[in-house]
Design a binder for these strands. Structure first.
Lengths: 322, 322
DNA sequence: GAAAAGTATAGATAATTATCTATGTAAACC
DNA sequence: GGTTTACATAGATAATTATCTATACTTTTC
């Protein structure tokens, strides 16, 4: 027996004949002519190398070989029914996997979207990577992920971006800091304090640097720290002041005060970025649709900046309905 | 996805590509050209309706759909490997089923062959029917069984017969019967006793009737009984004498004596009969070969009459070796 | 015995599959 | 930058599959 001479169609016809108990009835059910079915059975018998039926007074009776083939056929056809079900889930983005990479600060906000999405689509396997700006850009170059989350990204080849959230940078100091008691603070006042900063490659640092450059001023006393969390704790401990994403601050932050510095907050936005030269899995498309529809549920209104329409329009065939 | 556009060949090629990790390596392994494999993958992707691979720096990476297809392909191809194994067993007669019918007396001898055969081939399912001559003939007419065991069968259309064992009919009486003390008995002496008989339709009865007719004598005092066993017990209890198959007698029968009647024993043989117009299952062919080879093991030499060569020659394609 | 029902075979055709050669494109290697 | 390796696409061909119509044969039913 050479499996290459078997076709799924032959198996379908065979199973139908067995179930109907006659060639003619099977032909009717399959909307074929009786000779077609007769010939298909003959071909199948030749492919297997043994008779499949015996002539008996009671009609068609399967041989032992026929019995084994019936079982195998049902198993195989059933297995592909299962696969087709899986396929449906995959195509509707209800199942599958995708990879998303966030710059450090975005880790404070994305779980608020990824969490509910994962609950709504438990069969979607999301891999989350976190890195600084340079690391994220390197991954983009290497096509390593399906979605990238940046604020203020550079102009990247093959990148399609869409904003979904405001990411304002604010100045903070300890709650009992002298500047915290003022109702209005000049930029020079802020810069006379020691600034706690991220490393030069970070998005926050980059944004601050370019903003200060626009204002024609420069920083005087700085202290570089390894993470936003360390900076926040350092400010609370009066090591200095800082300019950080508002998202880094807990909802209640009694030990900290946002300083009303002239010109702040610095406006920036979280953006989803995909590669136009790379396939975006259905599950990732499902996630983007979910974000688009649920931003208002999970994010405070003043942060919402839903510009995902354009990005989603680049995937016109995505099946919104199952 | 339409399963009719999938072929086992496409699945084989796909599984090989995944395992080799590259299109070119798979092509080499399959002794195909690289474009062939590339095209096959494209066809498969179109049949499924989704991409199966993503381009990555590390070479081919399966999509989620590709992963599911790989799994389904392995399951399906493996299922048919199992079927091919089963098929092999079926074709060599190591597995399967057949039906055999015996006339009443043959039940004393066939278990001595069927028993060892069933042990040697535990996956062969044997259905044994027992009936009198008329019942066995009716089943033959209805094509109900694969093998028929007779002694002295009539000329049957489509029947192919082969002797395998002597079935001599002997005269018996109780051990203390006056005739049992004589060294020589005439037929007339025997017939002056009451004869215990089977019903007219039985093989033994038929054989006896025709033999007596040939001798130009006829029975006088008879008593009809329902089974060979009842006759044997009746003879031991001095109800009369009988002419029975020697096989009905236990190995040791101290309460009975075989009478040295002129002209006895009446010679007859057990025969296997198959229908030439009906498929004989491989498993039944395996049984006949087994009997042919092992008669001397399980049956006393003086009963052996192995003429199965001719019958077996009618199945020239039966695979003796696996 | 005639009619109806069921199965098998012959011949034909369109569609599909499996595979090749030729060529192009992209990426990796030296 | 040139060469090698790997994958994709175009075009072509032979083989195979799927199905039909026509017909023959067998069995069942009335």
């Amino acid at each position: 027996m050479n499996i290459r001479h078997l076709t799924f169609r032959l198996l379908q016809v065979y199973v139908t004949v067995v179930r109907c108990g006659s060639v003619s009835a099977a032909a009717r059910q399959l909307h074929l002519t009786q000779p077609t079915v007769s010939q298909q059975l003959k071909r199948l018998s030749e492919a297997v190398g043994s008779p499949l039926f015996e002539q008996h007074a009671q009609g068609l009776t399967m041989t032992a070989t026929g019995q084994a083939l019936y079982q195998a056929s049902r198993d195989v056809l059933g297995r592909f029914d299962d696969f087709a079900d899986q396929l449906s889930d995959l195509q509707y983005g209800r199942k599958g996997r995708f990879s998303i990479v966030l710059v450090n600060t975005a880790q404070y906000v994305l779980p608020r979207l990824l969490g509910p999405f994962s609950q709504a689509f438990p069969d979607v396997d999301v891999t989350v990577h976190i890195g600084n700006r340079r690391q994220v850009l390197a991954r983009f170059d290497r096509h390593e992920d399906d979605l990238y989350v940046f604020s203020h990204p550079p102009a990247l080849a093959h990148a399609v971006a869409a904003r979904f959230m405001r990411n304002p940078l604010v100045a903070i100091a300890a709650a009992d800091h002298p500047l915290a008691q003022q109702s209005s603070i000049s930029l020079e006042q802020l810069l006379s304090e020691r600034l706690l900063l991220r490393e030069p490659g970070s998005a926050t640092r980059m944004l601050l640097d370019s903003w200060l450059q626009e204002q024609g001023v420069s920083m005087q006393k700085t202290l570089q720290m390894a993470s936003n969390e360390a900076i926040r704790v350092g400010v609370a401990a009066r090591m200095g002041v800082a300019v950080l994403s508002e998202h880094v601050l807990p909802k209640e932050h009694p030990e900290l005060a946002v300083l009303p510095v002239a010109g702040l907050p610095i406006e920036s936005h979280w953006q989803f970025i995909v590669r136009s030269d790379q396939r975006l899995p259905q599950s990732a498309q499902r996630f983007l649709h979910y974000v688009h529809e649920h931003l208002g549920h999970w994010i405070e209104p003043h942060f919402v900046c839903n510009e995902l329409d354009g990005l989603l329009a680049t995937y016109p065939t995505f099946p919104l309905r199952s």
